[in-house]
Design a protein around this nucleic acid. Structure first.
Lengths: 165, 165
DNA sequence: CCTTGCGTTCGAGCGCGCTCGAAGCCTTAA
DNA sequence: TTAAGGCTTCGAGCGCGCTCGAACGCAAGG
């Protein structure tokens, strides 16, 4: 299936480092005919607190059923949605936008184009952010590499008595 | 000089897209025997507000002189430091850490090892963040690509009546 | 029976990083 | 001479995304 290919490419881009098991689950653990889960299980799986899960529910992002004693029961759809939501949160989409997106989802298939617009815009935002970070990373690495080495473009100008940052 | 080489590599990694002139300046505009600047000029150059510049000063991140009528005068060292600070902020270093770092700088050369530790840790943080974002980017692109296309791993499981996110 | 522990609701509080408004000073162009 | 506009200090306020505490319910083991 295509997901594996994509995942493989993603992982290849990332290098060997500790890509958490949870992260992989967030990409792949979808569509597996899951059992209903408790709030603690979902919180554990998504690596967020039960408090946050209740907060998302209050915010209208997801509807969650209750069992006979009033406890939350997360069915597959709820879990799937929460996987999506946490992924979006993690990549910096504001709650506001997520709320709007979910409104669109609940409004039916007519809103698919607008949802796509949002996703595309968010994709671009992520890309910009990655570029920003890449630039800062290069600068930081450069600084690390040259720190203490007495020569370097900036140091030649540094006046005596001023301490380098 | 080495800076250009690094910059070139950084830009190569980023592709053709609009890397802002400011961003390049933030990498290179250091060590140019700059004239003293007003708060508005610095704000403009760093793309932050004068309010924020005053806030950084209050936070102890930078010392800024005054002219005869009490106006701030940003000399080369202040500007250089602010370039560094904004770069760090942009890449997600908390104010707290920046304050600590600056304390170390002001404490003298003995603290260089600890400063290096901080930079290395921050570098790792940036790397982790980039990996996270890359993963989310892949997921978002995948979602965009398959949205509306009726087939896909998740869709085959979707029960009738449930709207896809 | 009762303790332990996880669940519930509700509203309040917090940490972060700005962001702003008020009241006043300085400088320049009309 | 005066009006505009940018600067100053100070403290307060805000938007975001949680995070927590209080007061209570339910269920399972000793």
């Amino acid at each position: 299936m295509a997901t594996d290919e994509l995942l493989t490419r993603a992982l290849a881009m990332l290098g060997e480092d500790d890509v958490s098991v949870e992260a992989i689950h967030r990409l792949t653990d979808v569509g597996g005919m899951t059992e209903p889960m408790t709030i603690a299980e979902v919180a554990d799986m998504l690596d967020i607190s039960p408090h946050t899960l209740r907060y998302y529910e209050r915010a209208g992002l997801v509807e969650v059923g209750r069992d006979s004693s009033g406890y939350r029961v997360y069915d597959e759809e709820a879990v799937r949605r929460l996987v999506f939501l946490t992924r979006m949160r993690l990549s910096g989409m504001p709650m506001r936008d997520l709320q709007h997106y979910i409104e669109l989802v609940d409004a039916g298939a007519d809103t698919v184009p607008e949802r796509l617009d949002m996703l595309v815009e968010h994709r671009d935002t992520i890309r910009r952010r990655i570029r920003e970070l890449t630039l800062s990373l290069a600068a930081t690495e450069y600084k690390i590499a040259t720190y203490g080495g007495s020569t370097g473009p900036e140091v030649t100008v540094t006046s005596p008595g001023s301490e380098r940052t």
